[in-house]
Design a protein around this nucleic acid. Structure first.
Length: 638
RNA sequence: GCCCCCUUAGCUCAUUUGGUAGAGCAACUGAUUUGUAAUCAGUAGGUGGCCUGUUCGAAUCAGGCAGGGGGCACCA
C-alpha cells in the first residue's frame, strides 16, 4: 500500500504498486500525455518505474529543467541508432549529455564525412517519426557481456565488465535497438522532438587515454523547441564574430605565420594594447609592494637540472647549443631566475616577504594540436611574480594576492569570478605538517575573498597546493587565468635561505603567482569579451578626427596636435571621401570616439563627437572635450 | 602528438565532372569637396600553401610536408 506524496504536498494511497504513468494519469489525462519521467525521492527514474514503497514523486514534463537532459540523452541514442542503421558494423561506445547537447563515440574504420553527418541527421528524424517505445530490462552481468560480445559490440562488453559489482546492468530497448545505459529515458523516442542538429565529427580517444585507439565522436545539439535551437545557433554565430583571431586580423592587431607557429607577430595597434596592459599591471604591482626584475631568457641546462624542470619538462623546452657546445634552455618559467636574484646576498627574516615580479617572456614547446590563436601559444609573456616568505606569512600574502587579482579583474568589467582550490596530490614533496599549514593558508585566503569556489581534491602541484582564478566573460564563457601556488620544493632545491630571528638558516616558502597568466592570452580574452569594442583607455586608436572637406583639414590638424600632446592615441582621416564613408570605415575599425569637424565647428572652436555604437552626437568646446577624454584615458583606479 | 577537415589576389569568397583563374571590398589614378555607417569611373594585382607523381594537359586526381580549423590528449 504505497503512499505517494506529490510536490504540492498531497498524499495519495494506492492499493498496489503503481507506475509513474498511473500516478500521472490519476492526476490528469493531460499530465499523463506530457509526462516524460519521474523523480522518486529525489532520484530520476523512467516513467514506467513501478513504485511499491511510500515515496515522494514528481512527474517530470518538458517544463522541468531536467527534461532537457532526457531529450539530449535520448538524442544520443537516436544518433547511435541512425549510425548503426546506416553503417552496419560500427560499434557504439559511450554517448553522454554535455552542455548544449550530446555526443556519441563510435568505433568504425572509415571516417564519417560531412555528408554522412547530414544522412545520419536525416535518419534520426525518421527514427523520431517512428516513435519506438522505450523499455528497460535488467540483465545478469555475464549474460550482458556475452550478448554484447556476440553481436560484435566489444567496447560495450568492456564497459559492462568495468561496472562495479554492486550496480545492476540495465539495458534500454528502443524498438529492437538496445544499449547498455544507466537511464532514465523518455517513454518513447518521438518525445525528443526535432529541435536537434548534428554539429561536427571529431576524434576522441577511447576512455580519454591517448594510449588507446581513437574513436570517432559525433557532436550534436538538442533543445526543447525549434526556437531554442535557432537561438543557440544564432549565439554560436555571434560568438564567431568576436573570435579574437578574426578581429585580430580585421583590427590589424597581430598575425601568425607558419615560420613561427604559436608565436605572435604584434602589429603596432596590438602592441599598443599589450603595452597599455603591461603599464597598468606594472603600476598596480608596484603599489602592492612588488619589486620588478628581469632575468635571462636563456640559461644553462645545469640550472634547469637543479630546479627539476629538466627532468620533468625537458620535452616541452626549447634548447639551443652554442658554438662552445654548451646546452642552454630558453626559459619556460621565471621562477629559477627569481631564485637566483633572491640568492644574491644574505637574506634576513626582516627582508621577507620579498616579492619579485617580472613580465617575463617564456617559451614552451606546446603540442602542435593545442595551439589556438592567442589563447594557447608557444611563446608568451607572464605577469609573473614570486613571493619569498616565511611559513607564517603564507596566509597574509595569499590574502593579498587574492585581493589584488580580484580587484584587477574587476577593472576590466569581469564581475563573475570563481576560484578553484586544489589540495595535496598523492605524489608530492614536503612534510605533511607544512602541507597542512599551506592548505590552511590558501583556504583562509579564499574565505577572506568571499568568492565562490570549488575544491579539486588531490589536484594540487607536487610541490604545493594552489588556487586558480576563473573569470566569466560577457558571453558566459569561463577562462582560467590567475594562479597562486605554494611551493615547498624549489627554494630548497635552488639553495634559497634566510637567517631567522634565532640566528638559524631557514628555507623560505615561495609563492608563485600570476594575475592574468599569459598576457597574450589575456589580450585575446579581452578582445572577445569586448567583441573588439575596447574601452577608451585600452583602445589602440582612441580618437579618429574626420574633417568634412578639405577646407577643414587645417582645423582638424590643430585638434590632432592638441590630442597628441595629451597622449591620446589619435588618427586623422584626410581622405577625399564623404563623411558617411569615413564614419562607416572608422566605426568598423571599432575606434571608440569619432570627432567630426566642419565649418560650424571650425568657427565656434567646437567639435562634434560620436561614440562607437551610438548615433547621437554631442557638440562641445574643444578644450572641454579634450580634458574629459584625457580623464577617460587614464587607467582605472582599483 | 592523435583523428577529421581546410589552404585560390592585401581581405572575404567563386571557378560542378582535369583544358593553365573570377567577383566584391581594399590599393592606385582621375573626377567629385561632400554634415553622421559605402560618390562615380578607370587601372593594376595571382609560381592556386610547398614538394613529388599520374596525365598530351593539374587549382582540380594521388602521395608527402608545412600551416590553419574543429575535437581528443596535454597545459610545470
Amino acid at each position: 500500500m504505497p503512499i505517494i506524496q506529490l510536490p504540492d504536498g498531497k498524499k495519495v494511497t494506492y492499493e498496489n504498486a503503481v507506475t509513474g504513468f498511473d500516478i500521472a494519469k490519476d492526476i490528469s489525462i493531460s499530465l499523463s500525455k506530457k509526462a516524460l519521467a519521474l523523480q522518486v525521492n529525489g532520484e530520476y527514474k523512467d516513467l514506467d518505474t513501478t513504485i511499491s514503497k511510500d515515496s515522494s514523486v514528481k512527474i517530470i514534463t518538458l517544463e522541468d529543467d531536467y527534461a532537457l537532459e532526457l531529450l539530449r540523452h535520448d538524442s544520443a541514442h537516436v544518433c547511435a541508432m541512425a549510425v548503426q542503421e546506416l553503417f552496419p558494423g560500427t560499434q557504439v561506445t559511450i554517448g553522454p549529455v554535455i552542455d548544449n547537447g550530446f555526443y556519441y563515440d563510435f568505433a568504425r574504420k572509415e571516417p564519417f564525412t560531412e555528408d554522412d553527418l547530414a544522412k545520419i541527421e536525416k535518419r534520426m528524424m525518421e527514427i523520431v517519426d517512428r516513435d519506438d517505445k522505450t523499455t528497460r530490462e535488467v540483465w545478469e552481468r555475464k549474460k550482458a557481456v556475452e550478448h554484447f560480445k556476440s553481436i560484435g559490440e566489444h567496447y560495450k562488453a568492456e564497459i559492462i565488465d568495468s561496472i562495479p559489482g554492486k550496480e545492476e546492468i540495465s539495458i534500454y530497448f528502443h524498438g529492437k535497438w538496445h544499449d547498455l545505459c544507466r537511464g532514465p529515458h523518455l517513454p518513447s523516442i518521438g518525445k525528443i522532438g526535432k529541435a536537434f542538429k548534428l554539429m561536427k565529427v571529431a576524434g576522441a580517444y577511447w576512455r580519454g587515454d591517448s594510449n588507446n585507439v581513437m574513436l570517432q565522436r559525433i557532436y550534436g545539439t538538442c533543445w526543447k523547441t525549434k526556437k531554442d535551437l535557432d537561438e543557440y545557433l544564432h549565439n554560436l554565430e555571434e560568438a564567431e564574430k568576436r573570435d579574437h583571431r578574426k578581429l585580430g586580423k580585421t583590427m590589424d592587431l597581430f598575425h601568425f605565420q607558419e615560420e613561427s607557429p604559436g608565436a605572435v607577430f604584434w602589429h603596432q595597434k596590438g602592441w599598443a594594447l599589450f603595452q597599455t596592459l603591461v603599464e597598468f599591471m606594472r603600476k598596480k604591482q608596484l603599489e602592492a609592494g612588488y619589486k620588478e626584475v628581469n632575468t635571462p631568457e636563456i640559461i644553462d641546462r645545469a640550472l634547469w637540472e637543479k630546479s627539476g624542470h629538466w627532468e620533468k619538462f625537458h620535452e616541452y623546452m626549447y634548447t639551443t647549443i652554442t658554438p662552445d657546445e654548451r646546452t642552454f634552455a630558453i626559459k619556460p618559467m621565471n621562477c629559477p631566475g627569481h631564485c637566483q636574484i633572491y640568492n644574491q646576498g644574505l637574506k634576513s627574516y626582516k627582508d621577507l616577504p620579498l616579492k619579485l615580479s617580472e613580465f617575463g617572456k617564456v617559451h614552451r614547446y606546446e603540442p602542435s594540436g593545442s595551439l589556438h590563436g592567442l589563447m594557447r601559444v608557444r611563446s608568451f609573456t607572464q605577469d609573473d611574480a614570486h613571493i619569498f616568505c616565511t611559513e607564517e606569512q603564507i596566509t597574509e600574502e595569499s590574502v593579498k594576492v587574492t585581493k589584488l587579482i580580484l580587484d584587477i579583474y574587476k577593472a576590466f568589467g569581469f564581475e563573475n569570478i570563481s576560484l578553484k582550490y586544489a589540495d595535496r596530490p598523492e605524489k608530492r614533496v614536503g612534510e605533511d605538517s607544512v602541507w597542512d599549514k599551506s592548505e590552511q593558508a590558501l583556504l583562509e585566503a579564499i574565505k577572506a575573498s568571499k568568492v565562490e569556489y570549488t575544491i579539486n581534491k588531490g589536484e594540487g602541484a607536487f610541490y604545493g597546493p594552489k588556487i586558480e582564478f576563473v573569470l566569466r566573460d560577457a558571453i558566459g564563457r569561463d577562462w582560467q587565468c590567475g594562479t597562486l601556488q605554494v611551493d615547498l620544493n624549489l627554494p630548497g632545491r635552488l639553495g634559497a635561505t634566510y637567517i631567522d630571528k634565532d640566528g638559524k638558516k631557514k628555507i623560505p616558502v615561495m609563492l608563485h603567482r600570476a594575475l592574468f597568466g599569459s598576457l597574450e592570452r589575456f589580450t585575446g580574452i579581452l578582445i572577445e569579451h569586448y567583441a573588439g569594442k575596447l574601452p577608451f583607455w585600452l583602445s589602440p586608436v582612441q580618437v579618429a578626427i574626420l574633417p568634412i572637406s578639405e577646407e577643414h583639414h587645417h582645423y582638424a590638424k590643430e585638434i590632432l596636435n592638441q590630442l597628441e600632446k595629451k597622449g591620446i592615441r589619435t588618427i586623422i582621416d584626410l581622405k577625399n571621401e564623404k563623411i558617411n564613408y569615413k564614419i562607416r570605415e572608422h566605426s568598423l575599425e571599432k575606434i571608440p570616439v569619432l570627432m567630426i569637424c566642419g565649418t560650424k565647428e571650425m568657427q565656434d572652436k567646437t567639435i562634434t563627437l560620436r561614440r562607437l555604437g551610438q548615433e547621437e552626437q554631442q557638440t562641445a568646446k574643444l578644450d572641454e572635450i579634450i580634458s574629459s577624454l584625457f580623464k577617460e584615458a587614464q587607467t582605472p583606479k582599483i
